[in-house]
Structure formats: structure tokens, C-alpha cells
Design a protein around this nucleic acid. Structure first.
Length: 963
RNA sequence: GCCGGGUUGGUGAAAUGGUAAACACGGAGGUCUCAAACACCUCUGCCUGAAAGGGCUUGCGGGUUCGAUUCCCGCACCCGGUACCA
């Protein structure tokens, strides 16, 4: 080795390198764990309390959507949100807040079960191994989590309370008058006292035990029912509406989904539809997400209208009730349609076709019964996918029955057609073909009459039979809408609606009503890897909740935990819960403590859906080891309670992906409201502020067969891409193992260190925007840290180079502008621009050269501490401090230095920049105008032209307008 | 179709009515070095010009304004959500 290279090596001995970063990072991570640096005290003297000083500060509860412990580990896209909340949490800690920040695991779910089926490994074994692996990966990032508060949803101590909440929901009902959930015992008391009548006019005491149970089931917020459910044979389980995609497939696995009638558990989320809608207003959420929830809840105002049926045709039912939002067009209703599954269909079908029934209506069948049966079979055989695809072409068949239009008195034919859905409204519509596009298409196909009752605003005229399409408008006047008792003619749509609704209500044949798209939440799954229901069935079939003393009801060990799956396209299959195979567990003798003594019961063998555990986890972070209560009320009040600006309370910041816009976020809001109503928590909403981070994307390279090739082995030549000599295509997509473009945080930590990775992810762009990963660009943030280090530490000796004394004016201005800007940016989640401002300051210091004054070095370190906590701790220690940087005060900008000494004023002539003036920021408009007009460049640009107007915006701009 | 968001240099982006392109990647040149790497310095939207300078530029077309990436109207394209919801 030559003398020179030895000297060079010595020179670099204390340079900030990946190796040094690894050393620094490991040491401080150990330190933080040992010291409990990120432990946030609860108020009071409980197990997690005691630090009264800290707990007296204003609180900030900062949360991530917790991860599912996947077997493939993390890629660099996963921790984006975790890093963002961590930077924010650190900044909040340094600005006087008691910060609760931790992370648990959402560990029940399908992948573990599927992996188990493939490998024979128990889901708990693989899940726990995955969690350990993820914890190691996450720890390397230096996330400031309070580890005492972490848990997994599969911990029995956790799901005990998931089950307990289920029991609370099961044992309550929704009082629609008081608009609140109440204990079911209070409903029973109302029935007993006669305050509330039992339907059918019987008294409560006259009902059998089964009848009572059935009656209460109609009120309970968690109830079992035989309603049609989404059955997915490919997954072997039923699914919630929210888990079925628009084209009728499972969101997970993309298997076909069929309607099947099965006895399943449901949550009466529809009882909360109005509150779930209204309370969105008080939340600080992205408007797009609020809108998605509003659309999912789908509130629409309209009316129910009764159509009398069957006069003279000898049919059973006496009326069909429809829901419509256009009751104003009632005079234009020329036929009716029921959903094929509608229960009235059988009762209205006559024995024979009415005389001279149109051939198109009968479908060529000899009798109405035959036509209806054939059409029902046809409709049922269509999967949802086909039904969507055929949406344009209207099909249906006449039932043989007629109903009476209540205002026109006309006899209108009743059809069944699959364009009317059983699941919305009443499953029956009045068809107004002139003013509804779907009815128009159907009427054309079946040669049904149309009547124009809304005056078209174009020149099409009022003879609907010659129209090319329906006239749909809310901003027009009614016509042809009068009978002996009422006339809507000349009224606008709004007034006509009001008038007809009143008229219908007065005759008890209709009323104004609100309808929701939201359906009850299907809550049971035929899986092994989920929370068992705390429900047993007596020999009479009545469901009983287990008493709290029997919780948690642990998931039993079984031989075979694979769900029974079927041919994905075979609709004629029935789900089989894995737990049902375990007879010893299913059949039990228990004393439920309800006075019935020891009895035999059968356990519920379904399990709860994956969403159950994530519906309330924010609450358990607050008081994770409480064995007596879900959460201590005083602790919940402190962290979650309503306050100024947060009318419904909740987590201060919740960061996660937008894919949970309806599912998780709607369910969690629902549980929160029930728990609030029952008096268990003070907050009404779980998450006050929601922020959706974007996705980190990556290029996907595919060969000619469209198979993804390893991204790291692709070469770029002349703007084209080659893999092993073959040309490949490039598109921006998701990052992942299957696309062979995953970059792991471990790789980047190894090459540059965790602080560099953190900075890079935050600097890429605004947090809420998706952006492509570019490993080449990571080095930029590494260089920033190297320069920062060199500005404070001598690379040869490793000693700090700071000096005593004051900084020069320019440095102070650079420093305080960075403090001001970066501080505001961090508080506003604008980490990319915060980093740019710190970089600018650091570049200024680099360029100025020489040793930094101590005060500048210290404030620089504090400034970057939230973003790059390891290097900040190390430099803070080197600067002679013995306390962690984590709880230091964030620097405060001196306003005197935030403004520049001189600013550049731009002088425009007719909007074009013609001169720049260096002036004092405190200059007056008059002085500035004088200065600008005297400038040689300006005089030249004006060329003697007449000045019409001078706009002065001191100190930044003068604009001279000439004639 | 309907609803929401977007379109700025070679690339990620900044600026929310007032100097378009901060900060970073990439690129070019230089200093240091026997040499290279590192580091540091200079330049880097496009066109034109020897230079000074001049002209153009935020998807496209209009409008409001002294002034528009920013506000308004229309259009194209991209992304997300949703879809026979009566």
C-alpha cells in the first residue's frame, strides 16, 4: 500500500458511510429499546401511567393502518406510511406533545390459512414467524413505537375483547326514536310491560321461548338470518357485500360469487346509516373518501307508493309497494316490475293469461306460472357477471296480473325482470318509461305504452311514443298529470313531489321515505383462522351469548383447518366451516349462569371475518393489558375523547391506503358508535383525521410472452430495454415479488443505512401521491447525510468541529428560514419540501465552509432529528449531550431572521421582466415605484411609451402597464 | 355512462394569483490526484445568438385579470371509485 492511499484511508476513517450508519443505527435502536424512549405515559397511576408531567401535555395519537404479517416480507413500498407517521410523531414529540405511536398486527386472515393448507404448517406458527420477521425488518427503520402497546389480533387476550364486543352488540338493539343502541333487556322490559306491542297483537308472556328469541332477533344489532348471501365456492366461504367486486367476483382471489340462501350472522349496520352519513361532516378526511362512503351508504329521498292489485283476477295479494325517487311522475307509470325473487310473485300469478295478451309479453309460454318459473330459472342461472354484461338488453316476462295506478286509475301490467333488484328499495318499481332510461328500454322491447308527464325542454314534443330516448330532468314542469282530485300540471319537479306525496299520505297509499343502498353487514365466515363466535345453541336452537367469564373462547386445535372449497363455478354447493368437524369442541355442556343450570349446547362453528379485529384496535393500544375492561374510561377519554375542533373525538392522525375507503373504515366507525351508545367509550368516531398515502410504484418489465423478468437484470440501450439480449416492454406497476421488481428495505439499509432510506421515501414527492421507486436516486439523500456529518464532524479525527461564537448574518437567515419552513412542512405532512429546506440550509453551510458555531450545529441536528433520528442522536451525543434528542424541543425560528435582508424585486413592463432591483423588504410602495421608474433597463424597455398604470406589490414586484 | 383526482425539464418534483422549474437524480465541464474513486466548484427547460441579449414554455382551445401552473368555461388523455340503486 502506498503512502498516499494509506493517507486517503485515514482521511476517510470517520466519514459517514453505510458501515458507520449500520453501527450508529444498531446502537441507538438498542438504546431506545433499553431506555423505553418512545413509551407514552397514560394519565393516572395505572400500569402504563405515572409520568404526570408528560401526561399533562396535549396528546397526539398517531396511528398507521396495521399490517397483515405476510410471508413474503416487506418491500420498500410498505413502510412509506410508517415512516411518514414516525416523522410526524417525532416532530410532535419535539413540539410539546404526549405522543402515542405504536403498531400491532392484523394477523387473522386468508393467506395464512391458504399457506397452511399448502404446507401443513399451522396458521399460528407461520403467522408468528412472519410477525417476528416483520418486526426485525421494521426495527431497522428506527420507528419510534411504544412497544409495550403492541399486540396481534390473534392474541387470545386481544380477541377476548373482540368476542366481548360481539356479545355487547348481540345483546343490544337500536332504538330508532332515541337514535341510539340500548341493551336488549330494556326492549324485553318494554315488551313485558306492554309499552311496546308485540307484532300480531299477542302478549309477551304468551310467546314461547322460540317465539321470543325470533322476535328479539328482529331487533338485535347482531342477528342470524336466512337472507340471501354472497356464496363463493372457490373460497369456500360467504362474503360481505363490500368484499364482492362490481363484476360479481370475490375481491380476494377473483372467484365467481353466487346468491345463496344460508343462515348467517349479520350486523345491523343499516340502523346507523344516517349517523354514519351525517358524522362524516365533522371528520378531517379526504373528500374523495367521504364521497365514497356517502355513495356506499347511498341515501335517497323518495316515497313508497301502494299499487292495488288483483281486482277480479282472483289473486292473493292486495297491493304492491314500490319505492321511487320520482313520485312526481306517478301519472306516467304505465307498468310495474317486480324482482324475479319477489315473494309476491307467486301470489299474484293467475291461472291463465288474460284475454288477448300480447305474444311478446308471454315469452311463448302457455300459462303465467310456466312463464314465471322459466324466467326465474333463467335469471337465477345468470351469474352476476353475466347479469352486468347483459345490462343493456332488457329481459322479463308478464306475470299475468294487473295493478291499478293510484292516480290515473289505469290498469297497468305487472312484469318480472332482472333489471329490478331484490336488494334495493322494495324489490318492486313503478315504471315510467318516458322519463327513465331503463324503463324506456324495457318498454320498447315489450311494446308497452309511454306517457309524457314532464314537459321536455328540447323540441321533441310530448308524444313519447316517437322519442329516441327517455327525457330525464329534474328541472322541468309537469304535464298530463291531473285527475279529478289532484293536478300537478305546471308544477316544478320539487313542488310536484311534495304535493303528490302529501296526497298519497292523506289516503294512506303512500308516504315520503328515505331509502339506503347500504345493506346489513354479513359477519360470519366458514374459515378456521378467525375469531370463534362466543355463541352457543341450546337444544331448542336458540342462540345464547357466552358470559364474560367464559371469554376468550379460544380457537381450538383441529386436525384439518382447511376450508372446504369447491369448483369455483359450482353454485349448487354449501359452505362447510372447518370448526364443525371438531365434534368434541362443538358439543359442550355448560352453565351459562342464566339460571338454566348445566345444559348441552352446540357451539357456533362459523368464525368472524377478517375485519373484526381491525374494527376497534385503536382502543386497545390505549390500555393493552387491561384484563378487566376493554379500555379504562379515563384513559380512553384522555386519548380519544371529543374536544375543540374534534367534535366526535378519535385518533389525531390515521394514515393508510385508500383501498380501505369503505370496508375497514365503515365497519370501524360502526363499532365505535355502538360502543359509544352503550357507554363504553366517549368517542363517537374512531379516526378524526385520515390521510391516504400514495403507492410506491415500480417498473415492470415483460418479455414477448408477457412474463415479468427480473427488473435488476434489465439493461437500457438507446431508450429500449433488454433482458438477456431480448427486447422487453416496460410499464409502471405495483411493486411485488410476483412482478420481479421488489426492492427490500433491508437492501437499501445495507447499502446506505436506514436514515437514508427514510429521507429518500419522504423526499420522493407529496405523501398522498403515487410515485415510481428509483434506486439510483437514493444516493442523493445519502450525500445529504454525508455533508451534514462533515459539517459537524472532522472526517479524520472523528471529533466535532464546532466553535463558540455567533454565526454570521447570512447563516442565521438560512438557519431560521429552514427552521420556519421545515417545521411548518412537517406539521403539515409535507415532508418532501421539509427535506428540501434542510438541504438548502446544509448546502449553504457546506458552501460557507469552516467550523460551525455550536448553536447552528445543534439546531441543524434538531431540525433533521424527526427525519433521520439515528444520525441525529449520534451527532447530539457527539455535541456533548447525554439526553436523547427525541425529547428535545424543536428549534423555534426567530422572525427577525426569517425575512431576507434584501430581496429581489422584479420590475415588469407589460408583464415581462425587464429589471431586477435589490431592495430592503421594508421598502414602501412609493419608494419602490420611484426606484423602478428610474431604472435604466426599465426606461429603455419603456422606450418613451405612455404609462397607463403602475402596479406595485412591495417588496416583490412592480408591473408597469403602458398604453 | 356517472363521480372524484390528475397532466409542469431527460427523471422524481417545487411554486395556490406576482421572477415557472426550489430540492434531488441523471448529464456536461472543471479543481484535487501519478491515476481513479470520493469530495468540492460551475453549467444544465426549449429555440436563437460569438456574446450581450432576444423569443418561447406548465396537455389543448377560450375567458377573467395589470398579471394565470394557480380562478372560470370547453376539449383530449391518464389514474382511481362506481355502475340496471328505481
Amino acid at each position: 500500500m502506498s503512502e498516499n492511499s494509506a493517507a486517503a484511508e485515514a482521511a476517510a476513517a470517520h466519514r459517514y458511510t453505510a458501515a458507520m450508519a449500520a453501527d450508529i443505527e444498531a446502537r441507538w435502536q438498542d438504546f431506545w429499546d433499553a431506555e423505553g424512549t418512545y413509551e407514552a405515559p397514560n394519565p393516572g397511576d395505572g400500569e402504563l401511567g405515572g409520568d404526570a408531567v408528560q401526561a399533562a401535555k396535549p396528546k397526539k395519537f398517531i396511528m398507521d393502518m396495521f399490517p397483515y404479517p405476510s410471508g413474503s416480507g416487506l418491500h420498500v413500498g410498505h413502510p412509506l406510511g410508517y415512516i411518514a407517521t414516525d416523522v410526524y410523531a417525532r416532530h410532535q414529540r419535539m413540539t410539546g406533545h404526549n405522543v402515542l405511536h405504536t403498531l400491532g398486527f392484523d394477523a387473522f386472515g386468508l393467506p395464512a390459512e391458504q399457506y397452511a393448507v399448502q404446507t401443513g404448517t399451522h396458521p399460528r406458527t407461520s403467522t408468528e414467524a412472519n410477525m417476528e420477521n416483520m418486526k426485525v425488518q421494521l426495527r431497522r427503520l428506527g420507528l419510534g413505537h411504544d412497544k409495550r402497546r403492541s399486540f396481534a389480533t390473534i392474541d387470545p387476550e386481544y380477541y377476548k375483547w373482540t368476542q366481548w364486543i360481539f356479545v355487547q352488540i348481540f345483546n343490544s338493539w337500536y332504538d330508532t326514536e332515541a337514535q341510539t343502541a340500548r341493551p336488549i333487556a330494556e326492549l324485553v322490559a318494554q315488551f313485558e310491560s306492554g309499552e311496546r306491542a308485540v307484532s300480531g297483537g299477542r302478549s309477551w308472556s304468551a310467546l314461547s321461548a322460540t317465539e321470543r328469541a325470533d322476535l328479539l332477533s328482529e331487533y338485535r344489532l347482531a342477528y342470524a338470518s336466512d337472507a340471501p348471501v354472497n356464496w363463493c365456492p372457490g373460497l369456500g366461504t360467504v362474503l360481505a357485500n363490500e368484499e364482492v367486486t362490481a363484476d360479481g367476483r370475490s375481491e380476494r382471489g377473483n372467484f365467481p360469487v353466487f346468491k345463496a340462501k344460508l343462515r348467517q350472522w349479520n350486523m345491523r349496520i343499516t340502523a346507523y346509516a344516517d349517523r354514519l352519513l351525517n358524522d362524516l361532516d365533522g371528520l378531517d378526511w379526504p373528500e374523495a373518501i367521504k364521497l365514497q362512503q356517502r355513495n356506499w351508504i347511498g341515501r335517497s329521498e323518495g316515497a313508497r307508493v301502494d299499487f292495488a292489485v288483483g281486482s277480479g283476477s282472483g289473486v292473493g295479494a292486495d297491493k304492491i309497494t314500490v319505492f321511487t325517487t320520482r313520485q312526481d311522475t306517478l301519472f306516467g307509470a304505465t307498468y310495474m316490475v317486480l324482482a324475479p325473487e319477489h315473494e309476491l310473485v307467486d301470489t299474484i300469478v293467475p291461472a291463465a293469461w288474460p284475454e288477448s295478451t300480447h305474444d311478446v309479453w308471454t315469452g311463448g309460454h302457455a300459462t303465467p306460472a310456466e312463464a314465471v318459473a322459466k324466467y326465474r330459472a333463467f335469471a337465477a342461472s345468470k351469474s352476476d357477471v353475466e347479469r352486468q354484461a347483459d345490462a343493456k338488453e332488457k329481459t322479463g316476462v308478464f306475470t299475468g296480473a294487473y295493478a291499478t295506478n293510484p292516480v290515473s286509475g289505469e290498469q297497468v301490467p305487472v312484469f318480472i325482470a332482472d333489471y329490478v333488484l331484490m336488494g334495493y328499495g322494495t324489490g318492486a318499481i313503478m315504471a315510467v318509461p318516458a322519463h327513465d332510461t331503463r324503463d324506456f328500454a324495457f318498454a320498447r322491447a315489450f311494446e308497452l305504452p309511454m306517457r309524457c308527464v314532464v314537459q321536455p325542454s328540447d323540441d321533441r314534443g310530448t308524444d313519447a311514443s316517437v322519442w329516441d330516448d327517455a327525457f330525464v330532468s329534474y328541472d322541468a314542469e309537469l304535464v298530463n298529470s291531473a285527475n279529478a282530485e289532484i293536478s300537478l300540471d305546471g308544477l316544478g319537479v320539487v313542488d310536484a313531489k311534495a304535493k303528490i306525496t302529501e296526497w298519497l299520505a292523506a289516503r294512506s297509499i303512500g308516504e315520503g321515505t328515505v331509502n339506503f343502498r347500504l345493506r346489513d353487514w354479513l359477519f360470519s365466515r366458514q374459515r378456521y383462522w378467525g375469531e370463534p363466535f362466543p355463541i352457543v345453541y341450546g337444544e331448542d336452537g336458540i342462540a345464547h351469548a357466552l358470559p364474560e367469564s367464559m371469554l376468550p373462547l379460544e380457537l381450538p386445535e383441529v386436525e384439518d383447518y382447511s376450508p372446504r372449497t369447491f369448483d369455483a363455478d359450482d353454485a349448487d354447493t354449501v359452505p362447510e366451516p372447518p370448526l364443525s368437524r371438531n365434534e368434541d369442541w362443538v358439543n359442550v355442556t355448560l352453565d351459562l349462569g342464566d339460571g338454566a343450570g348445566l345444559r348441552s349446547y352446540r357451539r357456533e362453528t362459523n368464525t368472524m371475518p377478517n375485519w373484526a379485529g381491525s374494527c376497534w384496535y385503536e382502543l386497545r393500544y390505549l390500555d393493552p393489558r387491561n384484563s378487566e375492561k376493554l379500555v379504562d374510561p379515563a384513559i380512553e377519554q384522555y386519548w380519544m375523547g371529543p374536544r375543540e375542533g374534534q367534535p366526535h373525538g378519535g385518533v389525531d392522525l390515521y394514515v393508510g391506503g385508500a383501498e380501505h375507503a369503505v370496508l375497514h373504515l365503515l365497519y370501524a366507525r360502526f363499532w365505535s358508535k355502538v360502543l359509544h351508545d352503550l357507554g363504553h367509550i366517549s368517542s363517537v368516531e374512531p379516526f378524526h383525521k385520515l390521510y391516504n398515502q400514495g403507492m410506491i410504484q415500480a417498473f415492470v418489465y415483460r418479455d414477448s410472452r408477457q412474463i415479468a423478468v427480473p427488473a435488476t437484470e434489465v439493461e437500457e440501450r438507446d431508450g429500449a430495454f433488454y433482458y438477456q439480449g431480448e427486447k422487453v416492454s416496460r410499464v409502471l406497476g405495483k411493486m411485488g415479488k410476483s412482478l420481479k421488481n421488489a426492492v427490500t428495505p433491508d437492501e437499501i439499509c445495507g447499502e446506505y443505512g436506514a436514515d437514508t432510506l427514510r429521507l429518500y421515501e419522504m423526499a420522493m414527492g407529496p405523501l398522498d401521491v403515487s410515485r415510481p421507486w428509483d434506486t439510483r436516486a437514493v444516493v442523493g439523500q445519502y450525500r445529504l447525510l454525508q455533508r451534514l456529518w462533515r459539517n459537524v464532524v472532522d472526517e479524520t479525527t472523528g471529533e466535532v468541529t464546532v466553535v463558540d461564537g455567533e454565526a454570521d448574518e447570512a447563516t442565521l437567515r438560512a438557519l431560521h428560514k429552514a427552521i420556519d419552513g421545515a417545521g411548518q412542512d412537517m406539521a403539515g405532512l409535507r415532508f418532501n419540501t421539509a427535506i428540501a429546506k434542510v438541504t438548502e440550509l446544509n448546502n449553504h453551510l457546506t458552501k460557507a465552509g469552516g467550523a460551525l458555531p455550536r448553536t447552528v450545529a445543534e439546531q441543524l441536528v434538531l431540525l433533521i432529528a424527526p427525519l433521520a433520528p439515528h444520525i441525529a442522536e449520534e451527532l447530539w451525543r457527539k455535541l456533548g449531550h447525554t439526553e436523547s434528542v427525541v425529547h428535545q424541543d424543536f428549534p423555534v425560528a426567530d422572525p427577525a431572521y426569517v425575512v431576507d435582508e434584501t430581496v429581489t424585486c422584479v420590475v415588469q413592463v407589460k408583464g415581462k421582466v425587464r429589471a431586477r432591483l435589490e431592495i430592503s423588504p421594508s421598502i414602501t410602495d412609493e419608494e419602490l415605484e420611484k426606484l423602478a421608474l428610474a431604472d435604466a433597463g426599465v426606461v429603455a424597455a419603456l422606450g418613451g411609451a405612455e404609462i397607463r398604470k403602475v402596479i406595485v406589490r412591495a417588496p416583490k414586484l412592480v408591473n408597469i402597464v403602458t398604453a
